Simulated scan of single mutants.
Amino acid sequence: MLMPAWTELAGAALGLLNVVLLVRRSVWNFPAAMAMVTLIGITLFEARLYAETGLQVFFFVVNAWGWYLWAVARDRADNTVPVGWMSDRARFVWAAITAALSLSLGWLLHRFTNAALPFADSAIAGASVTAQILLSLRRVENWVLWIAIDVLSVMLYINRELYFLAGLYVVLGVMSVLGLREWRNVARP
């Protein structure tokens, strides 16, 4: 693919806006995210990254849920939300759920589809499900997952010649580091 689809470019631009708003803990990240995942879903389907495509549908739904949760929790004065840390037990449970989801999805894609990179695709998808839920629940650990996801996504998208998405995920990785730092500084114990 020499020229990126307009959906890839527009999705990448909305992705940047979304993460800027997330780092700032703004409830308005959700409308940008919902538009972004719609456009990126189209792009990923065309690249035969089916787990990533399905993930965009999941993101759309969870972003609607997250929008509600954040709207209820936000500080009316500055439109930001409080954030906090998970317990050690919760971290273990979420790690196990993520591994099981990723491996199961990878096997299904390998066995029943023509997915380009089924296990890499599903590892990113499984971790992204967990990260998105933790983000909606306003847990600082979501940023650690997003950093790992961003690194893996860059490699996957370069492999599939989705260079604008790869570039987006480089920037998202940097912004995820900033998000982790910001949320860590304001997190409740």
Score class of each variant (00 low, 15 high):
Thr43Gln: 15
Phe164Ala: 12
Ile124Met: 09
Leu145Cys: 08
Trp143Ser: 08
Met86Val: 11
Ser104Gly: 13
Ile40Tyr: 06
Leu69Asp: 02
Gln56Leu: 07
Ala10Ile: 09
Ala71Gln: 05
Thr38Glu: 12
Leu180Asn: 08
Trp6Ser: 08
Asp121Val: 04
Ala123Trp: 09
Val93Ser: 00
Phe30Ile: 00
Leu2Ala: 04
Gln132Gly: 14
Trp65Asp: 07
Gly126Glu: 10
Trp85Ala: 07
Gly66Leu: 04
Arg184Ile: 09
Arg91His: 05
Arg24Gly: 08
Trp107Tyr: 15
Gly106Val: 01
Gly167Glu: 10
Pro189Val: 11
Trp28Arg: 07
Asp75Tyr: 00
Val62Leu: 09
Phe112Trp: 08
Leu39Met: 13
Trp183Cys: 15
Gly106Ser: 01
Met1Pro: 00
Leu165Pro: 01
Met1Asn: 07
Thr130His: 06
Leu14Gln: 12
Leu172Met: 12
Ser122Trp: 12
Arg181Trp: 07
Arg111Cys: 02
Phe59Leu: 09
Ala127Met: 15
Trp28Cys: 06
Leu172Gly: 06
Ala131Pro: 04
Val83Cys: 04
Leu55Asp: 10
Ser104Asn: 12
Ala51Ser: 12
Glu52Phe: 06
Leu165Trp: 02
Val177Leu: 14
Phe119Cys: 00
Leu39Ala: 12
Gly41Lys: 03
Ser122Pro: 07
Phe92Ile: 15
Asn142Gln: 12
Arg74Asn: 07
Ala120Cys: 11
Thr43Arg: 10
Tyr68Gln: 03
Ile149Tyr: 14
Leu17Asn: 06
Arg184Lys: 13
Val174Ile: 15
Ala95Ile: 13
Val171Ile: 14
Gln132Cys: 14
Arg188His: 12
Ala99Asp: 07
Asp88Gly: 09
Asn18Asp: 07
Val57Pro: 02
Trp143Glu: 06
Val177Pro: 12
Arg139Thr: 00
Phe92His: 13
Leu178Cys: 03
Arg24Tyr: 09
Phe60Cys: 14
Met155Cys: 01
Pro189Ala: 13
Ala35Asn: 11
Leu69Met: 10
Ala125Leu: 12
Gln132Met: 14
Met175Ser: 10
Asp75Trp: 04
Arg89Asn: 11
Val20Gln: 02
Val144Asp: 06
Ala115His: 00
Phe30Thr: 00
Glu182His: 15
Trp70Gln: 00
Ala51Leu: 05
Tyr169His: 09
Ala125Gly: 08
Ile158Thr: 11
Ala77Trp: 11
Pro82Leu: 05
Pro31Trp: 02
Tyr157Cys: 02
Arg188Val: 13
Val27Trp: 03
Phe119Lys: 00
Ala73Gln: 08
Arg76Phe: 11
Asn142Met: 12
Leu16Lys: 13
Ala71Arg: 06
Gly179Asp: 13
Ala10Glu: 04
Ile124Lys: 11
Ala12Asn: 09
Glu46Gly: 14
Met3Phe: 04
Val72Leu: 03
Met36Thr: 11
Val129Arg: 04
His110Gly: 04
Gly84Asp: 14
Arg91Cys: 02
